[in-house]
């Protein structure tokens, strides 16, 4: 099986993936625009095809990451993956029938861990840019992230499911990722507000208690919220972010009127 490698990165993250070309070439092609900054030291991600593993029973996406003490494992029929935040290395053995989407998911998990180790956070949210400012619409599955992105057209959507939050000298920035649907060419915007989506007949911005906000945000921090040892630092990082960025519950209905309410309060 031909081998390949490619570098991938967003903001201060950087991964160097090596493995079978059949897995990496499609990802390299799809993610070619996501090059790490030259000064970012990459983590090595070693991908190995292993026919002795059972045939995959489903996509790796359905496997639950288990994290303990800074080491995250991702195990499912046909897959054995491990990411160490301490050594900055990741390895995935997968059955040859695994596909690029499985590998892409593994790289996403590695990126989540590296981003956190370097001061950022991957965040389950729809990141929408409005008047040059980034708004993060978050909530449980089905709360309306994709709907909010749809009704915000033609505003740029950094991603309708996962964005990368990254600190900068000017405050927290929201970066686009290739892990979901996007709209427009904008890749980064200053984070203006966090908005917890709640479907309701009347549109309103409602204060969210600090505790509730913290719990909601941690629950939407992929991978890291699974490790009791990482969690205190995850909470601390969200507290730091919440001291700089306002959070609200956004009661919204299936139209674009929520932007009027947001502009009135935050514009």
């Amino acid at each position: 099986m031909n081998e390949a490698s490619f570098d991938f990165g967003i903001a201060g993250t950087a991964l160097r993936a090596r493995g079978p070309a059949a897995w990496l070439t499609p990802l390299c092609s799809a993610w070619t625009a996501w090059q790490p900054a030259p000064e970012s030291v990459p983590w090595d991600v070693c991908l190995t095809a292993d026919a002795s593993l059972p045939v995959p029973q489903g996509p790796l996406f359905e496997a639950t990451p288990h994290a303990q003490g800074g080491v995250c494992t991702l195990v499912a029929p046909g897959f054995e993956g491990e990411v160490s935040a301490m050594t900055g290395a990741a390895h995935l053995r997968a059955h040859p029938e695994a596909g690029p989407a499985d590998i892409g998911y593994f790289l996403r998990v590695v990126l989540a861990i590296q981003a956190f180790a370097r001061g950022g956070m991957l965040f389950h949210t729809a990141g929408i840019v409005h008047r040059g400012q980034g708004y993060a619409f978050f909530g449980v599955s089905g709360s309306g992230k994709t709907t909010a992105a749809h009704f915000s057209a033609p505003a740029p959507v950094l991603n309708d499911d996962l964005v990368l939050l990254w600190p900068s000298a000017d405050g927290w920035q929201m970066h686009a990722t290739p892990f979901g649907r996007r709209r427009g060419a904008v890749r980064v915007a200053p984070l203006r507000a966090l908005l917890r989506l709640i479907k309701a007949p009347d549109v309103a911005l409602v204060p969210l208690s600090a505790g509730r906000a913290l719990g909601e945000l941690v629950a939407n921090t992929p991978v890291l919220s699974a490790d009791p040892l990482w969690l205190p630092e995850v909470l601390t990082r969200w507290e730091a972010l919440l001291s700089a960025v306002p959070v609200y519950a956004l009661h919204f209905r299936r139209d674009a009127t929520f932007w009027e309410v947001i502009d009135a309060e935050l514009g």
């Binding site: 509730r212 719990g215 919220s225 009791p228 205190p232 507290e239």
Partner: peptide, 24 residues
């Protein structure tokens, strides 16, 4: 035993890491 808690503005955030859920 794996609960992680954080006091925040008069509330206690309780995170259940195995479930990825929380209680306030």
């Amino acid at each position: 035993p794996t609960l992680v808690t954080r006091e925040s503005d008069g509330e206690l955030v309780v995170v259940l890491p195995e479930q990825g859920k929380f209680v306030v």
